[in-house]
Computed example of a mutant assay.
Amino acid sequence: MRLRGRKKGGRFLELLMEQAKYAVAGMEALSQYMKAPSDDAAEQVSRIEKAADETRRILIDELNRTFVTPFDREDIFALSLTIDDILDYAYSTVDEMVILKVRPNPYLQRMSSLLTEAAREIQTGVTELMDHPAVASDHAVRAKALENRMESVYREAIGNLFGAPADLEHVVDMLKLREIYRHLSNAADRGDQAANVISDIVVKRI
């Protein structure tokens, strides 16, 4: 059993890195949609989200069948979940923008750009987790800093939304945009949680 665990240890890292890679690709696709919305751009986000879901299913199956893991199985599960949630919110954002006929605006473009940067930091953090934990921790800190910047843009966007002249048409648009903003804010929160898990893993390995 121990031999099986050691053999599979690297597999968990591979799957987590694959998830993180999909997260970056998904955020890049989201940013592209915010720059030039189209059916093809929306479909690209959906394809990446589905591929990432499959990777997570494989990871969970491996986790259920493996006794020895490279670090706490709870941390593997949590890191996988938070990375997956980032993509889920990206998909929900685009899906609802299409359904509600919401057009991108500068706030959405800024938020998606920050999410892309944060996803890249998380990807690097996951990649360096075992061989260079101090480097991984540094990238986790950077990801958390980007979440703070994202939250500032979110608050600015909400303030601008509620500060505009109110008529019936504006109220409808306001409610639509508020939901879209919340999806992106939630994606940033999940990125922050992923960074926390990376930091926790590093601390436990010291």
Rank of each mutant, 00 (worst) to 15 (best):
A194M: 10
R205V: 10
L13P: 06
H170D: 00
T82D: 15
E179H: 11
I86M: 15
K35W: 13
R47H: 11
K204R: 13
L114Q: 05
A118Q: 14
T69M: 05
E74S: 01
E49V: 09
Q44I: 00
Y33D: 01
P104K: 03
V68I: 10
L184M: 12
D72S: 14
H170A: 03
L161G: 06
E54Y: 05
Q44E: 15
L3E: 14
V171R: 01
E179I: 10
K8T: 00
L175V: 07
L177H: 09
K176A: 01
T55L: 09
V153S: 02
P165E: 02
R182T: 14
L3C: 03
A78F: 14
R182E: 15
R4N: 09
E18D: 11
E14R: 03
L81T: 13
A194E: 08
A194P: 13
A140C: 01
E117G: 03
P165R: 03
Y154H: 04
K8Y: 01
R142I: 04
A194T: 06
P37R: 00
L13H: 08
L63I: 10
V153A: 05
D167F: 00
R182C: 03
V126H: 04
Y107R: 05
N148W: 11
F12M: 02
L87S: 08
A166F: 02
T93N: 10
F12G: 03
R56V: 13
F71C: 11
N160A: 07
R4Y: 04
S185P: 11
V203E: 15
V202R: 12
L3G: 05
H170K: 01
V153E: 10
M97L: 06
K35L: 13
M1C: 07
E96T: 09
T66P: 10
K35N: 14
L114I: 10
Y107V: 15
D189M: 11
A51L: 10
M111F: 07
D200C: 03
T127H: 11
Q123N: 09
N105W: 10
L81R: 14
E169C: 00
R190D: 14
E28M: 05
E169A: 00
Q109Y: 02
R6V: 14
R2I: 12
N148C: 01
A136T: 09
R57Y: 14
V126G: 06
A41I: 11
S199D: 15
V98A: 04
E156I: 08
L184H: 11
I206E: 15
A90D: 11
F12Q: 00
L115M: 04
A157Y: 05
I198K: 04
I83G: 15
A157W: 03
Q193I: 08
V102P: 12
L146W: 02
A143P: 06
N105R: 06
L115A: 04
A118T: 06
A41D: 09
L81K: 13
R57E: 13
A41S: 11
D167M: 02
Y33P: 03
S80N: 14
E128C: 00
R6L: 14
L30C: 07
F77W: 12
V153N: 04
D72Q: 09
R190V: 05
M34W: 04
P165H: 01
P165L: 02
Q19C: 03
Y89A: 01
P104F: 00
S113H: 05
D85Q: 12
I48P: 07
G191N: 06
